[in-house]
Design a protein around this nucleic acid. Structure first.
Ligand SMILES: [Zn+2]
Ligand SMILES: [Zn+2]
Ligand SMILES: [Zn+2]
Ligand SMILES: [Zn+2]
Lengths: 152, 152
DNA sequence: CCTAGTATGTTATTACATAACACCCTATAT
DNA sequence: ATATAGGGTGTTATGTAATAACATACTAGG
């Protein structure tokens, strides 16, 4: 059986390869490994869990290796960092034409990615009203996901 | 001369006293000290800068003391934590009927607090469309503030 | 008194992230 | 062919953020 997780991962990997090709960067082994681990995870992961996981089996992996890979993948938009709790999650939709908000469930800890294209201009206007020119926006939430609401 | 910062600080202190009175909590020395330092600062502060500052003059102050005060003040809404860079800033408007976004200037590092009451329901709806029940929302930005735009 | 609740002080430790330097690989210019 | 520049990794060490755990103190109510 092929899970949807596995399909998603293969998509991400292909996307990563394509993006790197285009921008003349290398999709190297540590970068691939980090992306695979994140894509396979049900929930966002802490950097040090990722470091341990990456070190399983093969050679020990150290913080800088993983943090470099994370920086790279975040810049490409293949991975998102959740600021609230310093975790990292693989992007779950191809490409980022739209900015996204990340909502984390307090029960199961899974992250839901939500586009807020309509909202972002309003925030930019609200900022502009105070003379602030917005360049980067972070929208994150906490609450209860659909599955957990059903279960309760 | 009495600066607007000083007035703002006195407002905050009075607010803190009132809030504590109502909820049966104590506005103690370390809490007051932390709030004063934050209110006097031009920019959001890192916890450890706050710890150093709090220790100036009097007895040395250690991390737990300050982190406890910060937790307390954040719960009361008198201080906000900026998740992006783990800094803390005193609230600059009395009370929080409205949720606020914090926009930090990349040049001068000052934070601008912006109400987004109209926006928050839209985000809640966007989340609800995916079955997500939103309980807490973080909206933060980076960009250029008015003063720095003028200067440039 | 005694005790429950709130809060602080102190020591130690855990968790998150980066600086700095040596080394490797590959492309391209001379 | 070889020099050199850019991008990338490996490794050591360190810097920075936050909390665990336990002892102590103050205060209000029984
Ligand atoms: Zn995404
Ligand atoms: Zn859930
Ligand atoms: Zn505020
Ligand atoms: Zn500015």
């Amino acid at each position: 059986m092929v899970t949807s997780k596995e399909v998603h991962m293969q998509d991400l990997i292909r996307q990563a390869e394509a993006l790197c090709q285009r921008s003349g960067m290398a999709f190297t082994a540590p970068r691939r490994r980090v992306l695979e681990i994140l894509a396979a995870s049900e929930t966002p992961m802490k950097a040090y869990d990722l470091i341990s996981k990456a070190g399983e089996g093969g050679q020990a992996t150290k913080p800088p290796t993983v943090y470099r890979a994370l920086d790279f993948l975040c810049q490409l938009g293949l991975v998102h960092r959740i600021e609230q709790d310093a975790t990292f999650v693989a992007c779950n939709h191809a490409g980022h034409a739209q900015p996204v908000a990340l909502f984390v469930c307090n029960s199961c800890l899974k992250a839901t990615e939500v586009a807020y294209g309509e909202v972002s201009p309003i925030l930019e206007k609200a900022a502009a009203a105070k003379g602030f020119n917005l360049q980067r926006l972070v929208v994150e939430g906490r609450g209860q996901c659909q599955d957990c609401a059903m279960a309760a």
